[in-house]
Design a binder for these strands. Structure first.
Lengths: 247, 247
DNA sequence: CGCCATAACCTGTCATAACAACCGGGAGGA
DNA sequence: TCCTCCCGGTTGTTATGACAGGTTATGGCG
């Protein structure tokens, strides 16, 4: 068979524009459409996929937001992007991101405890002063070398359930699948600091090395803060990459 | 007069959905609609603004991409945003970003010269090995304190014109307005390093301070690389913030 | 041959219409 | 009283049709 039609009409497991979007994305990523190559016009796609223009445009709009294509009025829609960086626009946990790039990622739990939330944590998680929270400390390994210390704080109703779970894997999929929390977005803040003693020790650092510190506050889809973390990465072995657009 | 209709029919200066989007954004930012408050339903907006549903949805879609609102099927569309961080999803130069937050930003040019592009620069700008490029070195000040050293590299056809310009302001608006380049997006990469001697000197640092290093490759709207920069920020006086979404 | 008008094609915007899926509450039955 | 079912409201998806405005190629005219 060919590459396109037969989008499974009938009762619709997935929206048509999702199927078309994913199909186009696959063809872009596997090189069927090369960089700067023109995609078929919206009209052509209408007949190829057998849907209306609005559906095609919805698929293209998503790809545009992902940075995979760009359009020029009067000319057409073209494949834009060269490479990897890409999907860091999407909220991913450390392990998810690394696995997607073929690294072997693991984690070791240092401690898990219930405590009175520090002021910054309480503010971030929208707690009252004096409220308690769950703290999870972990070390992250990449190819068996320690690269990151992770301090995560959860509100009680979320964190309570963690004492009985295996925390050596990724927490995001756990929140979504086991706890049924739909994650929405995250506010991220980065700066650079010098390693303190504890960090130095766990990351096998010499005195006075630079640390890339990430503060990440993750919300559920309704905007409620779910997870506030400090991530301290070895400056010499980790880069944080992403892509943004102008206007 | 009221706040809504009369969207200037006729020949259309701006698309309707842009006017509606901007109007809603203004009302969200000025507090007319509070956090987590439900916006009028799409049907109500249709009659209020006197346009069709597709136009309303296009406005809401943009606001959703900006992170200002979120929708729940069967319930409605709600104001999400917590606060500032927000618009860092947009590509902005240092001065633009700081001015938007009310800081006094300035820059001092250290040098501008034509040279053979270093290997990493050539790769980023898509140049042949041996090709020349223009290098601009500047120090960035915030409220009169130095906070950042900026090394920018431009391809010859873009950079050549810079020798005769005032480079103490922002370069992005210059590229757009004077050179007529439409900027598209940027790939950004962050890590942490220790200050070298030159950086220490220009940023008034003691020995061995942490530096937040940003590599930023900015493209025009067609995907051609235009500007490759290394930005070295004082770790103690600058944070890089942004927001990302899951799926 | 060169210039310009025009046609063909493309994306951008917008209207109208319909049905699906989901949420909340109220009515009605056990 | 409590549970269930249904209905009205809301967003999600999709079709069809139309016109505006930009780009490119073609072809005719000077």
């Amino acid at each position: 068979m060919t590459n396109a039609p037969q989008l499974m009409a009938g009762h619709s497991p997935l929206p048509l524009y999702v199927q078309i979007r994913d199909s186009l994305r696959r063809q872009i990523l596997d090189g069927t459409y090369q960089i700067h190559e023109r995609l078929p016009s919206e009209n052509e796609m209408m007949t190829v996929f057998g849907v209306s223009r609005i559906t095609i445009r919805q698929a293209l709009r998503d790809l545009h937001n992902e940075g995979l294509v760009f359009s020029a009025q009067g000319k057409g829609t073209f494949v834009s992007k060269p490479k990897a960086v890409q999907n860091v626009q999407r909220l991913e946990g450390f392990g998810e991101a690394m696995a997607a790039q073929g690294y072997e990622a693991s984690a070791r739990v240092l401690s898990i405890q219930q405590l009175k939330a520090p002021k910054a944590v309480a503010a971030a998680l929208d707690l009252q002063p004096g409220d308690e929270a769950i703290e999870v400390k972990r070390v992250r390994y990449l190819n068996r070398s320690p690269v990151c210390i992770e301090n995560s704080y959860f509100p009680m109703d979320v964190g309570r359930q963690m004492f009985s779970l295996d925390l050596s894997g990724d927490i995001f999929p756990m929140l979504e699948n086991l706890f049924g929390i739909s994650l929405g977005g995250a506010d991220i803040s980065l700066d650079a600091i010098l390693a303190d003693d504890e960090t130095q020790q766990y990351l096998n650092l010499k005195t006075g090395e630079a640390i890339l510190r990430v503060e990440r506050l993750t919300h559920n889809r309704d905007g409620r803060p779910i997870d506030f973390e400090y991530l301290c990465y070895r400056g010499d072995s980790f880069k944080y990459q992403f892509r943004i657009d102008r206007k």
